[in-house]
Write a protein that binds this DNA or RNA. Sequence first.
DNA 1: CGGGTGACAACGT
DNA 2: AACGTTGCCACCC
Length: 113
Amino acid sequence: MTAQQRAAAIRKAVRAIKRGSFTSYGEVARRAGMPGRARLVGQVLRESGDGPSLPWHRVTGAGGRIAFPAGSAHAREQLARLAREGVPVRGNRAIVKRGAVGARSLDALLWKM
DNA sequence: CGGGTGACAACGT
DNA sequence: AACGTTGCCACCC
């Protein structure tokens, strides 16, 4: 498996994310057949840059957290694009639907959020 | 081979 | 919920 092939598989998985929804880096990696390589996903998206064929904004950190620093140009752009597609956002994150398995840590549940 | 670096993830406090 | 720590893994010196 060459780096090129891995990048292609990852981009394919990202393109498969439906409009109005989002997926974590780790999940994209799993769907691309490379569990545990979440960081590689970020690396590929970084070198791929922006483009109409690659909905990079639909990829978030675990639990919908935006990977870019809060307030940064990148973060604001991603949140704006997600919101434009109808994804509810709050602060530096996209809101995960309730009931999704593993959507929340036990902590978050106890802290009732 | 050795060490530093991330668009990460999971856990503990 | 905000942080800090660890574990991870591909890359690049």
